[in-house]
Amino acid sequence: MESKDQGEFKKLVLVRLQAMPSDISVHMGSVGELTREDLLEHVKKGDDLGRKIIAVQLRYIRAMKDL
């Protein structure tokens, strides 16, 4: 079960993904071509890819100050 913090962070990730332009395609080798809607679905579902996106988003946000 998600903790409250995890749930809040997931909402943040969804907001960030929602802001992506609709004409971007994300090509992820083993998964194939993903649209913004595909990415949102994976994160909402909390499947392997969704969890990976959330984990990397967390590292990204932490790294942003150095980037």
């Binding site: 004409d23 971007i24 395609s25 994300v26 090509h27 992820m28 080798g29 083993s30 990976k52 990397v56």
Partner: peptide, 13 residues
């Protein structure tokens, strides 16, 4: 170590 990923513009693919 992970899926290599890149973005494309749909009208340029």
């Amino acid at each position: 170590e992970n899926d290599f990923t890149f973005t494309t513009a749909r009208n340029r693919e």
